[in-house]
Amino acid sequence: MAELTYRNAVLAALAQEMERDERVVLLGEDITSGGVFKTTVGLVDRFGAHRVWDTPISEQAIVGAAMGAAMAGLRPVAEVMFSDFYAVCWDQVVNEIAKTRYMTGGQVTLPLVLRGANGFGSLGFGSQHGQSVENWAMCVPGLKIASPATPVEMVGLLAAAIRDEDPVLVFEHKALYGVKQPAPEGEQFIPLGQARVAREGTDVTLVGLSITVGMCERAAAVLADTGISAEVIDLRTLVPLDAQAVLGSVGKTGRLVVVEENPGQLGWGAAIAALAAEEAFDDLRAPVIRVSGGNVPWPVARELEAVVDVSPERIAWAVQTLMKHAAAPPRQH
C-alpha cells in the first residue's frame, strides 16, 4: 500500500486544493524550489509561476500581501516558514487579518491560510525556531487554528482550511514531517471544529493536539498494561473548539489530563482546563492536570531538549499520580 508522509500530506493538500480551485495561490520564501521543509515540491511546475509566488524575505509582507490578494478575490496560502516568525508579522495577523471581517461589518472576508512549521521535538532548532505557538493565536478573535496530528489529518484539515471563508493558521509540526501512514484514497476533507477520538478508554481522558496526540496514544498503551484505560482526544482545531467532545469524554471518564507542547503559562491547555472546571464540575472525580512544556525559552542543547518537552513517560506518570487521588469527603458544616 502506498504510504504518505506528513510532509507529503501538506503537498497533497495544496495540490488537491489548487487543482480544485483556480483562485488558490501560494506565496512564501523558497517555495518554488520546493520549500525549506520540502512541502511545496513540484507545485510550480504543475500549476505555474502565476500561482506559486516566491517572495522576498519579508514576513510582514508575506501575510500583508496575502490579505490584499484575498481582498482581490484570491484564496492565498501564505507560508511564514517557521511559526516562530509570526512574531515578525504579528501586527498584520492580529490587527489586520483577524479583524477585517468584523471591522467591515461582514462586508470583506479573508479566505486565506497561513502556514508555519511549528513545534519542538528535539530537533536542535533552539529557542527561536522551535516553539509551539498555537496559543499565541488562540488569544485573537477572528483567527481559526488547525494543528494536524497525522498525515491523513493534515490533508483533510489543510484542505478544509483552504476552503474556509475565514483566515486559518495551520501549524505543521516539524517533528512529524517524516511520519508515515497508509495513503488515503480520493479527496480528503475534515471539517474544522470536530475533534477526533484517537483511542477509546474509560478511566481518564487525555486531550492532545498535533504531536502530543501521538504521545498520549503511546502513554495510553503503557497505561493499559497497568490496568488504566485512557481515552485520547485529538482536538484537531483550537478554534473552533469542539468543547462537546471534551465534555462528553470527561462525562464518561471523570478525569482529565491536557497535554500541550507549549510552555504551560497560559498555554491552550489552560482553556481546556477552565472549560472542564466550568462545565464538567460534577463529572470530575479528580483535579484537572496539565502536562506542558517547560515554562522557559526552549533550549538548544540536546541534553536539555530531552527533558523540557512533554513525553509519553511524563504523561503516563501524571496519569498514574492522578489515579491515586481520592475524592475528598464532603465538607462538614
Binding site: 509566488w53 509582507a61 496575502a66 492565498p76
Partner: peptide, 17 residues
C-alpha cells in the same frame, strides 16, 4: 503604514488576473 502591503497584495492579485 500597514495598508501599503494590502495594496501590494491586492495589486499582485489583479495583476495575476
Amino acid at each position: 503604514g500597514v495598508q501599503c502591503l494590502h495594496a501590494v497584495g491586492y495589486g499582485m492579485g489583479i495583476q495575476r488576473d
